[in-house]
Amino acid sequence: MVSHDDVKYVARLARLKLADAELERYAEQLSGILDHINKIAELDLEEVKPTSHVISITNVFRKDAVRPSAPPAAALDNGPEIESGAFRVPPILDTEEQ
């Protein structure tokens, strides 16, 4: 069961703002989906190794070679707000520096 508070917490982590009605709806839908997903708990997976990649390749590297960067116009072209060649954002008030 996914609670209203769970949804609120997750929405905050994912930087999504949800109205109360939406929180309710998501809580209900996620609960339904997770009910189905919980089927996995039936399985005994103790001895099973996890898979994160389906192809078994390792050590994929590139040489340390410089390639041209994007021209400044292209780099900034899509920016919603540009100032002095940089991306401008509202003040960082309420999150802690990582």
């Binding site: 410089v66 960067s69 994007a70 400044p72 780099a75 002095s84 060649g85 940089a86």
Partner: peptide
């Protein structure tokens, strides 16, 4: 492949990957 360097004009050493 963007060059590693200190300083310089902002956003002149970026590409689809590092941006």
């Amino acid at each position: 492949g963007c060059r590693v360097e200190f300083g310089g004009e902002p956003n002149t050493r970026t590409c689809p990957v590092c941006a």
